[in-house]
Computed example of a mutant assay.
Amino acid sequence: MNLKKIDFFNPLIIVVAILVFLVMGYIGSFDYRFEDPLNMNVFLIIIFACILFSGGFLIIKNKIKVENTREINFISEKLLIILVLIALVLQTLNIVLIGGIPLFNSVLKSNATTNIWRVAYPLFLIMINILLAKYYNKKYLILVALGALIFGLNGYRTSVLGILGSSFITLYYLGKISKKIGILFIAVMVIGLMAIGYIASQSIANQHWTLNPAQLVFYRAAFTLEVFEKIIPLAGSTNGHILSMIFSSGSPRTFIGEYVLHYTVCLTSTLFGPVTLDFGLIGLAIQMLFMGAFMGMLYKLKKGIGIGIYSIILIHTLIWIETGPTDIMIWFLYLLGLILIIINRNYIKLNKN
Protein backbone atom coordinates (compact mmCIF):
# COMPACT_ATOMS: atom_id res chain seq x y z
CA MET A 1 0.00 0.00 0.00
CA ASN A 2 1.42 3.37 -1.07
CA LEU A 3 0.68 5.80 1.75
CA LYS A 4 1.48 8.77 -0.50
CA LYS A 5 -1.57 7.95 -2.63
CA ILE A 6 -3.97 7.75 0.30
CA ASP A 7 -6.06 10.84 0.92
CA PHE A 8 -6.34 10.82 4.70
CA PHE A 9 -9.01 13.53 4.74
CA ASN A 10 -11.57 12.24 2.28
CA PRO A 11 -15.07 12.09 3.83
CA LEU A 12 -14.65 8.46 4.92
CA ILE A 13 -12.33 9.73 7.67
CA ILE A 14 -15.63 10.53 9.43
CA VAL A 15 -16.52 6.83 9.48
CA VAL A 16 -13.06 5.94 10.80
CA ALA A 17 -13.39 8.59 13.52
CA ILE A 18 -16.85 7.32 14.49
CA LEU A 19 -15.56 3.77 14.91
CA VAL A 20 -12.55 4.98 16.93
CA PHE A 21 -14.88 7.01 19.16
CA LEU A 22 -17.10 3.94 19.59
CA VAL A 23 -14.16 1.77 20.65
CA MET A 24 -12.92 4.45 23.06
CA GLY A 25 -16.40 4.75 24.54
CA TYR A 26 -16.71 0.99 24.93
CA ILE A 27 -13.36 0.82 26.75
CA GLY A 28 -14.35 3.79 28.90
CA SER A 29 -17.71 2.21 29.78
CA PHE A 30 -15.93 -0.44 31.88
CA ASP A 31 -15.10 2.31 34.38
CA TYR A 32 -16.68 1.72 37.79
CA ARG A 33 -18.77 4.89 37.32
CA PHE A 34 -20.93 3.08 34.72
CA GLU A 35 -23.46 0.43 35.67
CA ASP A 36 -22.81 -1.70 32.58
CA PRO A 37 -20.73 -1.60 29.39
CA LEU A 38 -22.42 -0.23 26.27
CA ASN A 39 -25.03 -2.60 24.90
CA MET A 40 -25.18 -4.15 21.43
CA ASN A 41 -27.92 -1.80 20.16
CA VAL A 42 -25.48 1.11 20.31
CA PHE A 43 -23.00 -0.77 18.14
CA LEU A 44 -25.58 -1.95 15.60
CA ILE A 45 -27.20 1.46 15.12
CA ILE A 46 -23.89 3.29 14.80
CA ILE A 47 -22.58 0.74 12.28
CA PHE A 48 -25.89 1.13 10.39
CA ALA A 49 -25.34 4.91 10.37
CA CYS A 50 -21.75 4.49 9.09
CA ILE A 51 -22.93 2.27 6.23
CA LEU A 52 -25.49 4.87 5.14
CA PHE A 53 -22.96 7.70 5.32
CA SER A 54 -20.52 5.68 3.23
CA GLY A 55 -23.28 4.87 0.75
CA GLY A 56 -24.18 8.55 0.32
CA PHE A 57 -20.52 9.44 -0.27
CA LEU A 58 -19.91 6.59 -2.74
CA ILE A 59 -23.01 7.47 -4.78
CA ILE A 60 -21.69 11.01 -5.31
CA LYS A 61 -18.15 9.77 -5.89
CA ASN A 62 -19.22 7.35 -8.65
CA LYS A 63 -22.19 9.14 -10.22
CA ILE A 64 -21.14 12.80 -10.20
CA LYS A 65 -18.19 14.53 -11.85
CA VAL A 66 -17.02 18.14 -11.56
CA GLU A 67 -15.48 19.49 -14.75
CA ASN A 68 -14.09 22.67 -13.18
CA THR A 69 -14.71 25.06 -10.31
CA ARG A 70 -15.55 28.74 -10.35
CA GLU A 71 -12.76 31.01 -9.19
CA ILE A 72 -13.83 33.63 -6.62
CA ASN A 73 -11.82 36.79 -7.32
CA PHE A 74 -13.75 39.50 -5.48
CA ILE A 75 -12.28 38.61 -2.05
CA SER A 76 -8.93 40.37 -1.75
CA GLU A 77 -6.06 39.31 0.49
CA LYS A 78 -6.16 42.63 2.35
CA LEU A 79 -9.89 42.30 3.06
CA LEU A 80 -9.43 38.77 4.42
CA ILE A 81 -6.63 39.89 6.76
CA ILE A 82 -8.77 42.78 8.04
CA LEU A 83 -11.70 40.44 8.73
CA VAL A 84 -9.45 37.96 10.54
CA LEU A 85 -8.10 40.75 12.75
CA ILE A 86 -11.62 42.06 13.43
CA ALA A 87 -12.62 38.57 14.60
CA LEU A 88 -9.66 38.43 16.98
CA VAL A 89 -10.44 41.89 18.36
CA LEU A 90 -14.09 40.90 18.89
CA GLN A 91 -13.13 37.76 20.81
CA THR A 92 -10.65 39.71 22.93
CA LEU A 93 -13.41 42.23 23.69
CA ASN A 94 -15.71 39.33 24.54
CA ILE A 95 -13.30 38.04 27.20
CA VAL A 96 -12.85 41.57 28.63
CA LEU A 97 -16.62 42.07 28.89
CA ILE A 98 -17.09 38.66 30.53
CA GLY A 99 -14.73 39.83 33.24
CA GLY A 100 -12.14 37.06 33.29
CA ILE A 101 -10.80 33.97 31.57
CA PRO A 102 -13.54 31.32 31.20
CA LEU A 103 -10.98 28.50 30.88
CA PHE A 104 -10.23 28.85 34.60
CA ASN A 105 -13.75 29.64 35.83
CA SER A 106 -16.79 27.43 35.17
CA VAL A 107 -19.26 30.26 35.87
CA LEU A 108 -17.59 32.52 33.32
CA LYS A 109 -17.38 29.58 30.88
CA SER A 110 -21.14 29.06 31.02
CA ASN A 111 -21.57 32.67 29.85
CA ALA A 112 -18.70 32.74 27.35
CA THR A 113 -20.66 31.92 24.17
CA THR A 114 -22.13 35.40 23.81
CA ASN A 115 -23.47 37.02 20.64
CA ILE A 116 -20.04 38.60 20.16
CA TRP A 117 -18.46 35.12 20.18
CA ARG A 118 -21.12 33.84 17.78
CA VAL A 119 -19.97 36.47 15.29
CA ALA A 120 -16.23 36.31 16.05
CA TYR A 121 -15.71 32.55 15.87
CA PRO A 122 -17.29 31.75 12.47
CA LEU A 123 -15.84 34.98 11.04
CA PHE A 124 -12.33 33.99 12.08
CA LEU A 125 -12.77 30.35 11.09
CA ILE A 126 -14.04 31.10 7.59
CA MET A 127 -11.70 33.96 6.80
CA ILE A 128 -8.50 32.34 8.04
CA ASN A 129 -9.14 29.22 5.96
CA ILE A 130 -10.02 31.17 2.84
CA LEU A 131 -6.92 33.32 3.41
CA LEU A 132 -4.73 30.21 3.65
CA ALA A 133 -6.40 28.50 0.69
CA LYS A 134 -6.28 31.50 -1.64
CA TYR A 135 -3.24 33.50 -0.52
CA TYR A 136 -1.05 31.09 1.45
CA ASN A 137 1.90 32.62 3.27
CA LYS A 138 3.81 31.13 6.21
CA LYS A 139 3.32 34.30 8.23
CA TYR A 140 -0.43 33.67 8.32
CA LEU A 141 0.21 30.64 10.54
CA ILE A 142 0.90 33.17 13.30
CA LEU A 143 -2.73 34.28 12.96
CA VAL A 144 -3.87 30.64 13.20
CA ALA A 145 -1.90 30.16 16.44
CA LEU A 146 -3.13 33.46 17.84
CA GLY A 147 -6.73 32.55 17.04
CA ALA A 148 -6.42 29.14 18.69
CA LEU A 149 -4.99 30.80 21.82
CA ILE A 150 -7.56 33.59 22.11
CA PHE A 151 -10.59 31.41 21.35
CA GLY A 152 -9.14 28.63 23.53
CA LEU A 153 -9.40 30.95 26.55
CA ASN A 154 -13.17 30.39 26.35
CA GLY A 155 -12.50 26.92 27.74
CA TYR A 156 -14.12 24.99 24.89
CA ARG A 157 -11.98 22.39 23.12
CA THR A 158 -14.22 22.46 20.06
CA SER A 159 -13.17 26.01 19.13
CA VAL A 160 -9.47 25.12 19.28
CA LEU A 161 -10.04 21.90 17.36
CA GLY A 162 -12.12 23.76 14.78
CA ILE A 163 -9.40 26.35 14.14
CA LEU A 164 -6.34 24.09 14.26
CA GLY A 165 -8.01 21.12 12.59
CA SER A 166 -9.49 23.03 9.66
CA SER A 167 -6.24 24.95 9.11
CA PHE A 168 -4.28 21.70 9.17
CA ILE A 169 -6.57 20.11 6.55
CA THR A 170 -6.36 23.23 4.37
CA LEU A 171 -2.55 23.14 4.52
CA TYR A 172 -2.64 19.40 3.79
CA TYR A 173 -4.51 19.95 0.53
CA LEU A 174 -2.22 22.85 -0.37
CA GLY A 175 0.74 20.48 -0.06
CA LYS A 176 2.31 22.54 2.73
CA ILE A 177 2.44 19.78 5.35
CA SER A 178 5.43 17.45 5.50
CA LYS A 179 5.11 14.15 7.38
CA LYS A 180 7.32 15.35 10.26
CA ILE A 181 5.47 18.64 10.62
CA GLY A 182 2.13 16.85 10.32
CA ILE A 183 2.94 14.36 13.09
CA LEU A 184 4.29 17.14 15.34
CA PHE A 185 1.24 19.32 14.68
CA ILE A 186 -1.21 16.52 15.49
CA ALA A 187 0.71 15.60 18.65
CA VAL A 188 0.70 19.20 19.88
CA MET A 189 -3.00 19.56 19.04
CA VAL A 190 -3.97 16.36 20.88
CA ILE A 191 -1.94 17.31 23.97
CA GLY A 192 -3.33 20.85 23.88
CA LEU A 193 -6.93 19.66 23.61
CA MET A 194 -6.47 17.20 26.47
CA ALA A 195 -4.95 19.98 28.58
CA ILE A 196 -7.85 22.36 27.85
CA GLY A 197 -10.40 19.67 28.70
CA TYR A 198 -8.60 18.78 31.91
CA ILE A 199 -8.11 22.36 33.07
CA ALA A 200 -11.74 23.20 32.31
CA SER A 201 -12.95 20.12 34.22
CA GLN A 202 -10.92 21.07 37.28
CA SER A 203 -12.52 24.53 37.35
CA ILE A 204 -16.11 23.22 37.51
CA ALA A 205 -17.73 24.12 40.80
CA ASN A 206 -19.31 21.26 42.82
CA GLN A 207 -17.38 18.62 40.84
CA HIS A 208 -14.18 16.95 42.00
CA TRP A 209 -12.46 14.94 39.26
CA THR A 210 -9.86 12.28 40.10
CA LEU A 211 -9.29 11.25 36.48
CA ASN A 212 -6.08 12.11 34.68
CA PRO A 213 -6.30 13.79 31.22
CA ALA A 214 -6.15 10.49 29.28
CA GLN A 215 -8.78 8.81 31.49
CA LEU A 216 -11.01 11.85 31.10
CA VAL A 217 -11.03 11.44 27.29
CA PHE A 218 -12.24 7.81 27.54
CA TYR A 219 -14.75 8.73 30.23
CA ARG A 220 -16.23 11.51 28.10
CA ALA A 221 -16.59 9.18 25.11
CA ALA A 222 -18.27 6.54 27.26
CA PHE A 223 -20.64 8.99 28.92
CA THR A 224 -21.69 10.54 25.59
CA LEU A 225 -22.38 7.10 24.10
CA GLU A 226 -24.28 6.13 27.25
CA VAL A 227 -26.54 9.15 26.67
CA PHE A 228 -27.17 7.84 23.15
CA GLU A 229 -27.90 4.39 24.60
CA LYS A 230 -30.61 5.93 26.78
CA ILE A 231 -32.00 7.80 23.75
CA ILE A 232 -32.55 4.63 21.70
CA PRO A 233 -35.70 3.43 23.60
CA LEU A 234 -37.08 6.99 23.26
CA ALA A 235 -36.49 7.18 19.49
CA GLY A 236 -38.88 9.49 17.66
CA SER A 237 -40.66 10.62 20.82
CA THR A 238 -39.82 14.35 20.63
CA ASN A 239 -41.33 14.77 17.14
CA GLY A 240 -38.87 17.36 15.82
CA HIS A 241 -38.75 19.53 18.95
CA ILE A 242 -34.93 19.47 19.14
CA LEU A 243 -34.65 20.49 15.48
CA SER A 244 -37.03 23.40 16.05
CA MET A 245 -34.97 24.53 19.05
CA ILE A 246 -31.77 24.55 16.97
CA PHE A 247 -33.27 27.08 14.57
CA SER A 248 -35.19 29.16 17.12
CA SER A 249 -34.33 29.60 20.78
CA GLY A 250 -33.51 27.50 23.79
CA SER A 251 -30.76 24.99 24.51
CA PRO A 252 -31.15 21.65 22.68
CA ARG A 253 -28.43 20.00 24.78
CA THR A 254 -30.07 21.09 28.04
CA PHE A 255 -33.44 19.86 26.75
CA ILE A 256 -31.86 16.46 25.96
CA GLY A 257 -30.45 16.35 29.49
CA GLU A 258 -33.84 17.09 31.04
CA TYR A 259 -35.74 14.74 28.71
CA VAL A 260 -33.37 11.78 28.85
CA LEU A 261 -31.79 11.96 32.32
CA HIS A 262 -34.55 14.01 33.99
CA TYR A 263 -32.31 16.69 35.46
CA THR A 264 -31.02 20.02 34.22
CA VAL A 265 -27.66 19.40 32.58
CA CYS A 266 -26.16 20.30 29.21
CA LEU A 267 -25.41 17.02 27.43
CA THR A 268 -23.59 15.91 24.31
CA SER A 269 -25.35 12.95 22.71
CA THR A 270 -23.24 11.99 19.66
CA LEU A 271 -23.87 12.77 16.00
CA PHE A 272 -26.79 10.34 16.12
CA GLY A 273 -28.60 11.29 19.34
CA PRO A 274 -30.65 14.41 18.48
CA VAL A 275 -32.03 13.13 15.16
CA THR A 276 -32.82 9.70 16.65
CA LEU A 277 -34.69 11.28 19.54
CA ASP A 278 -36.60 13.56 17.14
CA PHE A 279 -37.33 11.27 14.18
CA GLY A 280 -36.24 7.74 15.02
CA LEU A 281 -34.13 5.48 12.84
CA ILE A 282 -35.72 6.79 9.63
CA GLY A 283 -34.56 10.30 10.52
CA LEU A 284 -31.10 8.99 11.35
CA ALA A 285 -30.93 7.20 7.99
CA ILE A 286 -31.87 10.37 6.09
CA GLN A 287 -29.36 12.47 8.04
CA MET A 288 -26.46 10.09 7.40
CA LEU A 289 -27.25 9.67 3.68
CA PHE A 290 -27.46 13.46 3.34
CA MET A 291 -24.21 14.06 5.17
CA GLY A 292 -22.37 11.44 3.15
CA ALA A 293 -23.62 12.85 -0.17
CA PHE A 294 -23.06 16.47 0.90
CA MET A 295 -19.50 15.84 2.07
CA GLY A 296 -18.88 13.90 -1.15
CA MET A 297 -19.97 16.87 -3.26
CA LEU A 298 -17.82 19.33 -1.30
CA TYR A 299 -14.91 16.92 -1.62
CA LYS A 300 -15.20 17.18 -5.40
CA LEU A 301 -15.23 20.99 -5.18
CA LYS A 302 -12.07 21.33 -3.04
CA LYS A 303 -10.17 23.75 -5.22
CA GLY A 304 -9.28 27.38 -4.38
CA ILE A 305 -11.51 28.63 -1.59
CA GLY A 306 -13.36 25.32 -1.86
CA ILE A 307 -10.42 23.74 0.01
CA GLY A 308 -10.98 26.08 2.95
CA ILE A 309 -14.74 25.52 3.01
CA TYR A 310 -14.40 21.73 2.77
CA SER A 311 -11.83 21.77 5.61
CA ILE A 312 -14.11 23.81 7.88
CA ILE A 313 -17.14 21.59 7.34
CA LEU A 314 -15.17 18.34 7.60
CA ILE A 315 -13.58 19.22 10.94
CA HIS A 316 -16.88 20.36 12.44
CA THR A 317 -18.65 17.22 11.25
CA LEU A 318 -15.89 15.29 13.04
CA ILE A 319 -16.52 17.38 16.16
CA TRP A 320 -20.23 16.55 15.86
CA ILE A 321 -19.39 12.86 16.42
CA GLU A 322 -19.27 13.71 20.12
CA THR A 323 -21.25 16.91 20.49
CA GLY A 324 -24.13 16.30 18.06
CA PRO A 325 -25.49 18.68 15.40
CA THR A 326 -27.26 21.03 17.79
CA ASP A 327 -25.49 24.33 16.99
CA ILE A 328 -27.17 26.65 14.49
CA MET A 329 -23.81 28.37 13.94
CA ILE A 330 -22.30 25.17 12.52
CA TRP A 331 -25.35 24.58 10.33
CA PHE A 332 -24.52 28.02 8.95
CA LEU A 333 -21.21 26.52 7.81
CA TYR A 334 -23.18 23.81 6.00
CA LEU A 335 -25.11 26.63 4.34
CA LEU A 336 -21.77 28.04 3.21
CA GLY A 337 -21.05 24.69 1.59
CA LEU A 338 -24.44 24.75 -0.12
CA ILE A 339 -23.64 28.20 -1.53
CA LEU A 340 -20.38 26.80 -2.93
CA ILE A 341 -22.32 23.99 -4.63
CA ILE A 342 -24.83 26.45 -6.11
CA ILE A 343 -22.06 28.72 -7.40
CA ASN A 344 -20.48 25.74 -9.17
CA ARG A 345 -23.73 24.11 -10.32
CA ASN A 346 -22.91 24.54 -14.02
CA TYR A 347 -19.73 22.51 -13.61
CA ILE A 348 -21.42 19.59 -11.85
CA LYS A 349 -22.41 16.81 -14.26
CA LEU A 350 -23.78 13.29 -14.12
CA ASN A 351 -21.04 10.75 -14.75
CA LYS A 352 -22.24 8.56 -17.62
CA ASN A 353 -19.33 6.11 -17.39
Rank of each mutant, 00 (worst) to 15 (best):
L125G: 01
L125M: 14
L125A: 04
I126N: 02
I126V: 07
I126W: 00
I126F: 00
M127Y: 00
I128Y: 00
I128F: 01
I128W: 01
N129I: 13
N129C: 11
N129K: 11
N129Q: 12
I130N: 09
I130R: 09
I130M: 11
L131G: 04
L131R: 05
L131T: 00
L132F: 04
A133V: 01
A133C: 08
A133E: 12
A133F: 05
K134M: 02
K134E: 08
K134T: 02
Y135Q: 10
Y135W: 08
Y136E: 11
Y136N: 14
Y136A: 10
Y136M: 13
Y136S: 01
N137E: 01
N137W: 00
N137M: 02
N137L: 04
N137K: 00
K138R: 00
K138V: 09
K138S: 05
K138H: 04
K139T: 10
K139C: 10
Y140N: 15
Y140Q: 13
Y140E: 11
L141N: 13
L141Y: 07
L141Q: 12
L143S: 14
L143D: 11
L143G: 12
L143R: 06
V144P: 09
V144E: 04
A145I: 02
L146G: 05
L146H: 05
L146T: 08
G147K: 02
G147Y: 02
G147S: 07
A148L: 05
A148S: 14
A148H: 11
L149F: 15
L149P: 00
L149R: 07
I150G: 04
I150M: 08
I150Q: 06
I150V: 07
I150H: 07
F151A: 03
F151I: 08
F151W: 15
G152K: 09
L153T: 12
L153M: 14
L153C: 08
L153V: 14
L153I: 00
N154R: 04
G155W: 01
Y156V: 07
Y156K: 08
R157C: 07
R157A: 12
R157K: 10
R157T: 13
T158N: 13
T158A: 01
S159M: 08
V160G: 10
L161Y: 15
L161S: 14
L161E: 14
G162E: 10
G162L: 04
L164C: 11
L164R: 08
L164M: 05
G165I: 03
G165C: 07
G165T: 05
S166W: 05
S166Q: 04
S166A: 01
S166I: 06
S166V: 03
S167E: 08
S167I: 06
S167L: 09
F168Q: 10
F168G: 11
I169S: 03
I169N: 02
I169K: 04
I169V: 14
I169C: 03
T170L: 09
T170V: 06
T170G: 03
L171N: 10
L171R: 12
Y172W: 05
Y173D: 07
Y173A: 08
L174P: 04
G175L: 06
G175S: 13
G175W: 04
G175N: 06
G175Q: 15
G175E: 13
K176N: 11
K176V: 09
K176R: 13
K176Y: 08
I177W: 07
I177H: 05
I177Q: 07
I177G: 06
I177A: 12
S178M: 15
S178Q: 13
K179A: 15
K179Y: 01
K179S: 12
K180M: 15
K180T: 13
